[in-house]
Design a binder for these strands. Structure first.
Length: 219
DNA sequence: GCGACAG
DNA sequence: ATCTTGTCGC
């Protein structure tokens, strides 16, 4: 990689760190405002070369069936850098959410405050739009997993609990964290209540949908 | 210096 | 995450 390119990336990351720290101070780790318990939304982004396909699926909690699905296709130029997923997926996630009237709590494929600066993608979307979000990651990015009790293991970083490993029936747990406007215990409950075969159904549908569209879309 | 590293 | 069909295994 050219040296000048490398310098411009470093400059962008420096600004991103400042933005993340500012936004992190605005995360609300309480159940506010009272959310619609009857629906829950999942968001995922799939890639095919430079094409990014984002999908948001609103699911009815009682039946776990999709009642609304929106997608966006976009050309993406930003590489993924660990700790800065929001630079790559933030814009499309925000635009997906703007297309929805009612979402209930929003599950996002990535982390909330389970992040080096407590500002993962889920918290980013939650703070910017002032909505209720939850981070659900398939792999851990930061923190130390404490002792498992039943199907839960707290994830610590420094002296605070910033997430929870949750076993939903498969060998591998999912890593749940507060996005915004919610407590960790409520986040875990929401994830459990919409899980099917070891994974939250809204995220599974969003992932499947985005993948299918990416596969059938010409660049 | 070395390894780890959401998607 | 992506490039990629069928295939080995729990």
């Amino acid at each position: 990689m050219p040296e000048d390119k490398k310098l411009s990336i470093e400059k962008k990351l420096k600004n991103a760190v400042r933005e993340q720290i500012t936004l992190a101070s605005q995360v609300v780790m309480e159940d506010f405002p009272p959310f619609d318990k009857s629906i829950v939304t999942g968001i995922d982004v799939h890639y095919s070369g430079s094409l990014a396909v984002g999908c948001a699926t609103v699911v009815e909690v009682e039946t776990l069936k999709a009642i609304q699905t929106v997608t966006l296709n976009r050309e993406v130029q930003v590489d993924y850098i660990p700790g800065y997923l929001y630079l790559r997926e933030g814009p499309i996630v925000l635009d997906l959410l703007k297309l929805l009237e009612n979402t209930g709590p929003v599950l996002i494929d990535g982390n909330g405050v389970l992040h080096p600066r407590r500002m993962g993608l889920a918290s980013y979307a939650g703070v910017v739009l002032n909505i209720q979000t939850i981070g659900v990651a398939k792999r851990i990015h930061v923190g130390i997993i404490g002792p498992r009790v039943d199907n839960y293991a707290p994830i610590h970083d420094d002296d605070e609990v910033i997430g929870m490993a949750v076993w939903l029936g498969k060998e591998k747990p999912v890593f749940v964290s507060v996005g915004n406007n919610i407590t960790l215990s409520t986040s875990v409950r929401v994830v459990k209540d919409c899980a099917v075969r070891g994974y939250p159904e809204p995220l599974r549908i969003a992932h499947r949908t985005a993948k299918e569209i990416a596969r059938n879309t010409q660049l």
